[in-house]
Amino acid sequence: MADSMHRKLIESKGAVMAVLTTVAISIGGLVEIAPLYSEALGPEPMEGIEPLTPLELAGRDIYVREGCYNCHSQMVRPFRDETLRYGEWTRAGEIVYDRPFQMGSRRIGPDLQRVGGKYPDAWHYEHMDDPRATSPGSIMPRYSWLKERQIDPEAVQASMRALQTLGTPYTDEQIADAPAAIQRQGGEIVARLEAGNLSAQPDDQIVALTAYLQQLGVAGRKAIQAQKDAAAALEAGTEIPASVED
């Protein structure tokens, strides 16, 4: 019987058991993961999807640090109700530069993958300071310390260098320019906040987080629209606009 073979050949030899176990647990992972990691089958960035700016990158690191992913997903599913609630479903080509990915597994709060542009900057500022101010009944914690702490441009540069090594297309110039870029982009947000009688500094953590949130899903939405327009144009038999073609 098979039992006695098992006993004789496998159970009596630790090494055989270990090798067979290793083989058994390796097959599934290899078959599933290897194709995605290969050049040919792995996802490509969609048209117009760019790496985060230095300020947005700093904001993303805050998002990770505070553990926002514990309550918010960034993965809109291809269901009509999610399209109504959040917008277009999330494409692989939109999140190619996400390291680590932020798709999440819980929606204690709503999905954020397309939150960019949904609210004004001031909304985020007030919401992070006290979520009840903008969303009565919310169970989200306050994050008022984000107003008082600043980001470290040098740490952002170190992050950009690491990401560059991993293949994110940051240029050396972009990395060198990061501190100035932070001031520029942060300054624009601060100006908008000030219009709403809120005060902040360009390198405040709240500003960086706002910058990150405000770009979420925006470029992806444009890229998807462009794809749709192109498809519609094709169907209508008209010329494909040159900008979409390449």
């Binding site: 109504l84 917008g87 949904k118 609210y119 004004p120 909304w123 219009a195 709403g196």
Partner: peptide, 14 residues
Amino acid sequence: VPEKGMLSWEPILG
């Protein structure tokens, strides 16, 4: 009216 802080409600309410 995004510049004044009012949301675009159509995507939210339909």
